[in-house]
Write a protein that binds this DNA or RNA. Structure first.
Lengths: 362, 362
DNA sequence: ATTAGCACTCGGAAAGAAAGAGTGCTAGCA
DNA sequence: TGCTAGCACTCTTTCTTTCCGAGTGCTAAT
């Protein structure tokens, strides 16, 4: 199933031509590039079409790469592209101003990725699932107590609970013991209805409070696990001829705008060796992406966390350029967050190192 | 300049007809509604056109409201619309789950507003400008010190500064005195180049550090003043026939996506008596909005802060419905944030009152 | 003041014609 | 056997042309 060298060159030329122009490419135009007559090209293209690498929109149009054609191109044919000085400089400059809050950083990285690639982009950092390390209950008055939960990631969450009936100190103590016994060390997915039920049964006369505190716990854990995600440049889709149809564009933009759908799309196993994953058209799981491609890169976000940046576009995407840019940005983020070493081109002026800004109420 | 009753009815019918169908409305169709012949309507419409309330796309089309026509409609003709049970219920349910973080709350309110109105929407809360209350400088070692700034809103910001040369304890003390003298009590807009220059002159042998600390200060103040803004549903524009042209849609979506542009659009003086402001087509300052309308409502965000929710759409916008929905949501937000009283339909289960969740690193 | 009637004006849809790009195939050439 | 030149054919795109109808403005009658 190996292609002749010339077939490879032709396929490459078709893919790159189509990426550049969004028009089916014809034999005549290729003849110059390949260096043989258009008739020869036609023969070769005809074979590539029966092999499934090319497609014809209609009888008398040029050829367009099929998903399989793109796949072959991405896996074997495309050349790694280099970024220009200006591009690396722009990325470095943006990354140099790191933001203290992960949410804002993700938003900025999304913006950066989108503006560098000219496609809609997203950035997210996966947080590992957290559990509660310990609960403390503070008895305020007979109608009021505070729950304090210390999470495994050392975040502290609290909630003031005001009751329409009264409780005693001992009841709160019981509650505390119950929660520390049943609800610590478990992630939000592991908290099942049955655990809540059995805790309620064990709670005696405070069973009514179990649901309240349990739902607070769930909320905290879910919130702590939610990956911060930055999405940017969705409207850039409209620049692409394949999304000139407002309905198509709308459908995909809706999909993109919903961060949770993107998170579902993350690779379960891992990425390619180079840290880049390309998913082409029908390879995508989500129905909304069947006509689009996604290029994704992962980075090391420190503390054992992994992050992802990605770009959504037509199958006719500039895979090579996008992959190069994502690689570079991802590498920069890894350095920034995991602190492997100082980014190559970063502008280290007077301030050589800076702590994170901490915010707290005074 | 008062219109006859019949003219008002005709104008209203034209505006509402055009809002509903996006097609110019003709005399024939109106004749049924108004109850007189189409010829009469034509005469009246002709007058309304010379008065500037209606426009003709071309000689043989129906009439379309002019901006002045919309304005008159919004100010005097349109009836306050009531929300349906389902709508109020949906809003109440969404608002019941208030988020602890203002950024997330704004994002959610933006979503809510957009989904209720079917237009792109934004939500933001203005923070009052802050200043630094006091600076503290902590000398770590001869190459390192920490700046700590306590802001007027009681936030604390800090930065570890690592130097490529060495400083003495006394120099840091001098610096501290200088900054506490010159950079406290001023907002970021009041920090001018000349203040920085004169401080540098006064700084003696530590003049090199002034710029670093000053820029840190500016950063903190700017960050603290930045209004959290939630933008949602930009792609809904594509549902509107006037934005089927991808280029138009793109231009406006870009504008919307840039939150800072929206903030610029806020009313300097205040809103109408009902807390609603409608800006129609050319009334908008921003060039990108000249063909669009903005409906905005303000709410009380507590602590003397004001917030705004708004919707962007074609001039042919459902002003009445949108205004009603924004009013309702804004009122709900005022109650929620300023705590005037419990929202009418809110579901107050067991938990009657809850504190805000505080997050801090442990 | 209102209405019926009528000629007129455009924009938009439909239909037709011409242009152009690209193919597949056949036949000839190294 | 592999490549190339030539040619008839296909099919989309684009440009005209035509036609239709909705809606108007005006005039005359009620």
């Amino acid at each position: 199933m190996d292609l002749s060298d010339r077939k490879k060159r032709i396929l490459t030329a078709v893919v790159e031509g189509y990426i550049a122009t969004a028009e089916p490419v014809g034999s005549k135009h290729l003849a110059e590039q390949i260096g043989c007559s258009s008739a020869t090209i036609r023969n070769e293209m005809s074979e590539l079409t029966t092999m499934g690498y090319l497609e014809q929109p209609h009888t008398s149009a040029g050829r367009v790469p099929s998903p399989a054609g793109y796949r072959l191109y991405v896996n074997e044919l495309m050349e790694k592209q280099k970024l220009t000085e200006a591009e690396t400089a722009a990325i470095n400059e943006k990354l140099a101003r790191k933001d203290e809050q992960i949410e804002k950083l993700m938003a900025e990285v999304g913006q950066l990725t989108s503006s560098m690639t000219q496609y809609p982009a997203y950035a997210l950092t996966m947080k590992p699932p957290v559990a509660v390390k310990r609960f403390d209950f503070i008895y305020v008055d007979q109608n009021t107590f505070i729950v304090v939960a210390l999470l495994t990631d050392n975040m502290v969450k609290n909630k003031l609970i005001h009751l329409p009936f009264s409780v005693h100190q001992e009841q709160i103590t019981t509650l505390s013991a119950l929660f520390n016994a049943n609800f610590t060390g478990v992630t939000d997915r592991e908290i099942t209805e049955s655990i809540i039920r059995s805790t309620e049964r064990a709670a005696g006369d405070t069973y009514g409070l179990v649901a309240v505190v349990a739902s607070f716990t769930m909320e905290c854990l879910a919130a702590a696990r939610t990956a911060p995600v930055g999405i940017a440049g969705a409207s850039r889709l409209l620049n692409q001829p394949e999304y000139r149809d407002p309905d198509k564009a709308h459908a995909l933009m809706n999909f993109i705008a919903d961060g949770s759908r993107l998170v579902d799309d993350l690779p379960p196993a891992g990425m390619g060796a180079d840290g880049i994953r390309v998913t082409i058209g029908p390879e995508n799981l989500a129905e909304e992406l069947k006509d689009s491609s996604v290029v994704m890169a992962s980075y090391d976000a420190g503390d054992g966390m992994r992050g992802y940046i990605g770009v959504v576009g037509p199958t006719r995407m500039d895979y090579s350029g996008v992959a190069a840019k994502l690689s570079y940005i991802a590498a920069g983020l890894s350095r920034l967050l995991a602190g492997t070493d100082a980014p190559a081109g970063l502008d280290n002026k007077l301030v050589l190192k800076e702590s994170e800004h901490h915010e707290q109420e005074g």
